[in-house]
């Protein structure tokens, strides 16, 4: 069957492959460590935003507590490595699994709430997790855990001076989240989730099981977020509650998806490509001077986008399907 949906999906796959190749080649001519780091962080946040998008975008469950899954994923892989010697390349899958499991545990009570109530509940649960880790000696408390360096190794995801291997690790991670989102978009699950987002009552009347749909979305989203946390911890070689479980991080995970275009395949990536460099650059150039100038610029960009493109940056390109009918690109 050759119609608009199948054609669009095939085109997206081609664009995705081209982008992947471009990103594989991108760091090669760049020798500058600072720039390479910037690209790595941007790609990591692109993957994280896509992971958030799976639950927040497609299924419409706005979570402001994804920092919890991120932090727990990081702690699981770190502690497995430090305490039990399990290599992080394996540990990051364990981190992802635990992240997904925790997302299910959070979802079990919280998905009974809807809309704003759900969002607030996720903030509270993430804050509880943060405080728990802050005061838990086994995981290093507020001091966190340093990851000892044991020599360059893919298995341990440790490289003393090279940035390139990390580039490919986060790229593989982001590509996996994109592929997951692409598969979901074209599957029975994806349709169920979007139906749940648009209208729960109508979805149920068509046989869509609402609660299991939300739980499945949460598990997949939590899995990838936990995996991202594990990669991040290994990248910086250190983990503590402030850098991996804070409420600010939860916002940073959600924002690229929201700004780029919620529930779209490219929105989270576009948002991360704009926001992450902006936040890193403004922080390094302005962060030192009068406190908070960097964050003010960041906030200003968000306000401008919200005013000019309420449907997300992606609507600039007319890629967003909603934009097709409405001439101004905003949803009717």
């Amino acid at each position: 069957m050759d119609n608009r949906i199948t054609r669009r999906r095939r085109r997206e796959l081609v664009v995705g492959a081209v982008l992947l190749v471009a990103l594989i080649l991108l760091p090669l001519p760049i020798g500058d460590v600072y720039t390479r780091n910037l690209i790595i962080i941007s790609i990591l946040f692109a993957g994280l935003a896509q992971a958030w998008n799976i639950l927040g975008g497609y299924c419409g469950q706005i979570s402001l507590g994804h920092s919890l899954y991120f932090g727990i994923g990081g702690y699981v892989s770190t502690l497995l490595f430090v305490q039990a010697g399990v290599p992080p390349l394996i540990g990051m899958f364990a981190g992802g699994l635990v992240g997904g499991l925790v997302a299910l545990l959070v979802g079990w009570p919280c998905f009974r709430l809807s809309g704003h109530y759900y969002a607030i509940a996720t903030v509270v649960v993430a804050e509880i997790g943060y405080l728990l880790f802050l005061n838990w000696d086994f995981v290093g408390g507020a001091m966190g855990v340093y990851i000892p360096f044991k020599g360059d190794s893919w298995l341990a995801l440790q490289f003393r001076t090279q940035k390139l291997p990390y580039h490919y690790v986060v790229l593989a991670f982001a590509a996996a989240t994109w592929l997951a989102a692409w598969c979901i978009e074209g599957s029975r699950w994806g349709f169920s989730w979007r139906a749940v987002k648009d209208d729960v009552v109508a979805a149920r009347s068509l046989g869509v099981r609402v609660f299991p749909s939300k739980m499945a979305a949460a598990a997949i989203s939590g899995f990838f977020t936990g995996m991202g946390g594990a990669i991040y911890a290994q990248y910086v070689g250190y983990i503590d509650p402030d850098s991996t479980m804070s409420g600010q991080l939860a916002i940073l995970i959600a924002l690229p998806a929201v700004l780029g275009g919620v529930g779209t395949l490219w929105g989270p990536f576009l948002g991360a490509a704009v926001l992450t460099p902006l936040s890193e650059l403004s922080r390094s150039y302005l962060g030192g001077s009068g406190r908070g100038v960097d964050l003010m610029i960041y906030g200003l960009v968000i306000v401008v986008v919200a005013l000019a493109r309420p449907a997300g940056l992606l609507s600039l390109f007319g890629l967003r399907r909603r934009a097709k009918g409405a001439p101004d690109g905003s949803p009717a």
């Binding site: 119609n3 608009r4 949906i5 029975r188 349709f191 169920s192 979007r194 139906a195 987002k197 648009d198 209208d199 009552v201 109508a202 979805a203 068509l206 046989g207 869509v208 529930g263 399907r321 909603r322 949803p331 009717a332």
Partner: peptide
């Protein structure tokens, strides 16, 4: 009317067809 407004007409009906 409770249509799924983020979807096309065909996608709306596909939600039913997946049953």
């Amino acid at each position: 009317v409770r249509s799924f407004d983020s979807m096309t007409v065909l996608e709306n009906v596909m939600v039913g067809a997946y049953a």
